[in-house]
Simulated scan of single mutants.
Amino acid sequence: MNFELIDIRKVDSTGNFKLNEDYILSYDHSDGWSERLLSLGIYIDLIFECKIVISFRRKNFENFEKQFECEIPSEIKNIISEIINLDPLTLKKHYADTFMEDMNRQHYAINHSGKSHNIGIGTLLKRPQPENPSEELFITLIDLFEKWREVIYQDCLKNII
Rank of each mutant, 00 (worst) to 15 (best):
T14K: 11
E62C: 02
N20S: 07
I24L: 05
I152P: 02
R127M: 14
D143Q: 13
D102V: 05
T98A: 13
R58P: 02
L19M: 08
I142E: 08
R127P: 05
I161Q: 14
D97S: 12
I161W: 09
Y27R: 08
Q67R: 02
I44V: 15
E21D: 12
T90I: 15
K59L: 13
G114Q: 03
E65M: 12
S26Y: 04
F17I: 12
Y153D: 06
D155N: 14
Q67A: 00
I8V: 10
L40P: 11
P133F: 06
I44N: 01
V151C: 06
E135T: 03
G15D: 11
Q67M: 10
P130L: 07
N85T: 09
I8L: 03
V151W: 02
L19C: 03
E4Y: 08
D22C: 03
R127C: 09
Q129M: 14
E35I: 14
K147S: 11
M103S: 11
S26H: 00
Y153S: 04
I79Q: 02
I42G: 01
F17K: 05
D22E: 14
I79W: 00
K126E: 13
L46V: 10
F61R: 13
R127D: 13
P128G: 05
L38P: 12
K18L: 15
R9W: 12
N111L: 12
E136G: 09
R149Y: 09
E101F: 14
H94I: 14
G15H: 01
I121F: 01
H94F: 15
E135I: 00
F145W: 04
N111H: 03
Q67Y: 04
I24V: 06
L144G: 02
G41N: 09
G114D: 07
N78W: 00
E146H: 13
A96P: 05
S13V: 13
G114P: 00
E49A: 06
P128E: 10
F138W: 04
S116T: 10
G32Q: 04
E21F: 01
Y43C: 10
C156I: 08
D102K: 12
N60Y: 09
K115V: 15
S34A: 06
C70T: 15
E131H: 08
K115Y: 12
I52L: 06
G32Y: 01
Y27W: 09
D28R: 11
G114T: 08
Q106M: 14
F3N: 01
Y95H: 05
R9C: 04
H29C: 07
